[in-house]
């Protein structure tokens, strides 16, 4: 039986196979999943905003740029090689829309863009980006196989 490690909002965790990483109820937030397929270790971060320049301050795990640095540091500490790392991400939805008022600031899209850029900056290939839409996602990441299971309430379930 695999262990399931839960990643909270503005939080990050690492795991070794066969354990799974889980984060529940991603809206405009994004779950970043990274693993080393050779060593079968990996991690997940549940980020809320693109960069720490935002207004919320505090916790570095809250932001795409700083959370990724934390995550990479910890995965490297477990012996993973940066050149072997692969990434997947899910989330970044736009949950609400007001009639006649286009949202000024699509935070979900901005989050997805920021994660993509940061991964590129670190030279980590992004294999899957299941982002956008107007629905929430719960994700399970298998650090051994790299399989990402994405569950939704009204838009089915898939493994990518």
């Amino acid at each position: 039986m695999n262990g399931v490690i839960t990643v909270g909002m503005a939080d990050f965790k690492t795991a070794t196979a066969p354990d799974l990483l889980l984060t529940a109820g991603l809206g405009s937030c994004i779950g970043i999943c990274i693993h080393d397929p050779f060593l079968k270790v990996g991690g997940m971060a549940h980020i809320m905003l693109p960069t720490a320049n935002g207004s919320l301050g505090g916790n570095p795990a809250k932001y795409a740029d700083t959370a990724l640095v934390l995550l990479l540091k910890e995965i490297s500490g477990m012996g993973a090689l940066k050149s072997r790392l692969k990434a997947k991400m899910a989330g970044g939805a736009q949950m609400f829309s007001f009639p006649g008022k286009p949202p000024v600031l699509k935070i979900g899209d901005r989050n997805a863009e920021a994660v993509e850029q940061e991964l590129k900056r670190h030279g980590i290939p992004l294999l899957v980006a299941d982002v956008g839409g107007n629905f929430g996602r719960t994700i399970h990441f298998d650090v051994g196989t790299g399989e990402l299971r994405i569950r939704t309430i009204n838009h089915g379930e898939k493994v990518v």
Binding site: A24, G25, G27, N154
Partner: peptide, 8 residues
């Protein structure tokens, strides 16, 4: 939808 997703 999922309460966490809507609140975030």
């Amino acid at each position: 939808d999922m309460i966490g997703a809507t609140l975030d």
